[in-house]
Each structure stands twice: as structure tokens, then as C-alpha cells.
Simulated scan of single mutants.
Amino acid sequence: MVGGVLVVIALLVIRLSDDTSAPRLPADITLPDGATARAVTFGTGWLAVVTTDDQILILDSETGALRQSIQID
């Protein structure tokens, strides 16, 4: 039983320390003038920034370039 617990702990440490699944952020993200970030979410190859002026900005996760802007009504 003690061996099983040690194996589970070892697997958790190995799995949680794996850094490859962490989101990649560009070194510099520039939002349009007057935009302030309220929330951020990550996808594969992109990130979305919700701004305080009710916009969703879709940015490229490698370059930080703006891909799309969506106005929330």
C-alpha cells in the first residue's frame, strides 16, 4: 500500500511538472489605444482578450498580432 501511494505521488509530480502543456505567450502584447484587459483565455495558436469596453480581441499567440476584433453588443 505504501508503494502504491509513492507511485501515485511520483506520477503526480512528474505529470504536474511537465511544462509543455503551459500556454505560450508572446514577449509583448500591445492592445489598441484605450483598451484595458478584463480577462484572457488561451487556445491553440491564439489568445483572446476581453476588454473593459466590451470587445473580444483575438491575438496570435506567437507574434501577438491582432487576428480579429469582435464587438459585444
Rank of each mutant, 00 (worst) to 15 (best):
E62P: 03
D53L: 11
S21K: 15
I29W: 04
L31P: 00
I14T: 06
V2F: 09
T41K: 02
I14Q: 10
V7Y: 00
T63E: 01
P26S: 05
L31D: 03
L31S: 00
Q55Y: 10
T44N: 05
A10R: 03
L59Q: 02
I70P: 00
D73F: 07
D33M: 09
A65T: 03
A37R: 00
V50C: 14
V50M: 12
G4H: 06
L47G: 05
I56E: 07
L12Q: 01
S61W: 00
G64N: 03
L47A: 05
S21R: 14
D53W: 07
D19V: 12
D18V: 11
G45K: 03
R67D: 10
I58G: 06
S61M: 03
G3S: 12
L11S: 10
L66A: 08
Q55N: 15
V13G: 13
V49C: 00
S21W: 12
T52M: 15
Q71I: 12
A48F: 11
L31G: 05
T36K: 13
G64S: 02
T20Q: 13
S21I: 14
R38K: 07
L31R: 03
L57K: 00
A48Y: 08
S17F: 11
V49R: 01
L25D: 08
L25R: 10
A48C: 07
Q55T: 15
I70G: 04
D33K: 07
A22I: 15
T36G: 14
A65E: 07
V8D: 03
T44P: 10
G64R: 04
Q68M: 13
V7E: 08
I56A: 10
A39W: 08
I29V: 13
G64L: 11
G4L: 13
T30E: 13
V8L: 15
V7N: 03
I58H: 12
L31Q: 02
D18T: 03
P26L: 11
D28V: 15
R24S: 07
L16W: 06
S69N: 13
I56H: 01
I72T: 04
V40M: 04
A22E: 14
M1Q: 07
V5P: 00
L47E: 00
S17L: 15
A39V: 14
A10C: 07
V40F: 03
T44R: 11
A65P: 01
W46I: 11
D53T: 12
L47N: 04
D73N: 11
R15K: 10
I70Y: 04
M1G: 08
A22S: 14
P26Y: 01
A10W: 03
A27P: 01
A27K: 10
A27I: 13
L31E: 06
T20D: 11
V5C: 06
D28H: 06
L59A: 02
G3C: 13
V5N: 02
T51P: 00
